[in-house]
Design a protein around this nucleic acid. Structure first.
Lengths: 222, 222
DNA sequence: TCAAATTGATAGTAATACTATTATATTTGT
DNA sequence: ACAAATATAATAGTATTACTATCAATTTGA
């Protein structure tokens, strides 16, 4: 009895060799994510990861150019996975407001491991992306990486959510800005709730975060 | 004929030796900021900075523990400076909505060099902080650094703006969350406008950014 | 089963992120 | 004006990082 497997496609520019195509590759993904969540991007090195999976640096370099590319891979994976979930949760719902409600629910909710993706633990992934995702685009290499398609999946999701906003109010002039504001804020507010509580208002509680962003969003586009 | 000098006080935990207390120190600040704006935090090293100011690494290490502390110093300086400006622009204004309007105006406006602070070019500082500031708090060392007072100035400003929001609507439950959402968004939207335009809506234009955030803020707390 | 591709083992390089030592300036307190 | 204290520059050195290169052993796949 095998449960279904969810294929999350990731851009070719985000790896040297597709990590899902081999056992070592999958191990790099799985334990790379765990190591990242444990020590953070700064202290993360391919050498440490190689030791963890009993492999070598050179092998890991055959899959990813460097740790930044590895992070970008996870970033895209996360948003592609989120896109699938959002897509699933909003099909056949006619009312765009209800769709928006569900989207914000999904974005603000703490996720748990999705067993359909064997080597990625989404609960860990969410924490890692919340902490590190800004670092994917806040770099002097943005333009180059943008050219290479590093942010396509994120853009795609932003477009999808913007379309819902436009459905609710076709005259609202800043749909994309509103969406990215909410997405970034979702990560930051939860993070502040856990580490810098004076910068927020009890946002470690999922429901409050959801209410804050839904309220903000609906009022803004009303 | 000397113009007035604006003293921006920075926490003692943000340096080893006060850089404003000596010529080399001031040079580290001035050229450190320039170098940061040129090459970004990743490629920035004390060795390169030392070469630029014809000094040595060891001298710089006597002022700052590492480049992260140096960035945090600039982060605090920026928000302290912004706090002074906001404070000045909002005294004697009775209407809290008008005060909020002015605050959002100041936050979203591209700043130009403030000649009252001799060794810091605020125009550069704003660009650097927009790109790098998230990295000050998105780190595995947040709690430790928070303890040490690394974010005090930012918190202070958030409190000040939150108070204005509470004045407008004392029942609004998320004033701090709203303020940090706006402050972060202000940086990110402008950045997206310049580098990832599909994630925003022409936010490289100051006036549009201001309108987007002011509208969002006023509707949310209405 | 033979060629091709993949991995592991090992080595090596340039740069980073520091720390330590000492000689030389410079400042300062009296 | 001078000695004492302090700051800086010059130099050296270490452990780690971020790679690249080579080659033998192993796996795979046509």
């Amino acid at each position: 009895m095998q449960h279904s497997v969810l294929q999350i496609p990731v851009q070719e520019s985000l790896f040297v060799k597709d990590p899902t195509s081999s056992t070592v590759g999958k191990s790099i993904l799985e334990h790379g994510l765990i190591l990242l969540s444990e020590i953070g991007l700064e202290d993360f090195t391919f050498k440490k990861l190689a030791a963890k999976i009993s492999s070598t640096e050179s092998t890991i370099y055959r899959y990813f150019e460097n740790k930044h590319q590895f992070l970008s891979y996870l970033f895209n994976f996360y948003w592609a996975w989120m896109d699938v979930n959002i897509s699933f949760a909003t099909t056949n719902i006619d009312d765009p407001k209800e769709r928006l409600r569900r989207i914000i629910g999904l974005i603000t909710k703490k996720v748990s491991n999705d067993l359909r993706t064997p080597f990625i633990d989404e609960a860990l992934l969410q924490d890692v992306i919340a902490l590190e995702s800004s670092k994917t685009f806040l770099s002097k290499k943005v333009d180059e990486e943008n050219q290479a398609g590093y942010f396509l999946q994120y853009k795609k999701l932003v477009d999808r959510i913007s379309a819902v906003i436009i459905e609710i109010n076709s005259g609202y002039p800043y749909p994309n800005a509103l969406v990215t504001t909410i997405l970034e804020s979702s990560f930051h507010q939860r993070y502040f709730g856990n580490h810098l509580p004076r910068l927020t208002n009890e946002m470690h509680i999922d429901k409050r975060l959801e209410e804050f962003l839904l309220d903000l969003c609906l009022k803004t586009i009303a």
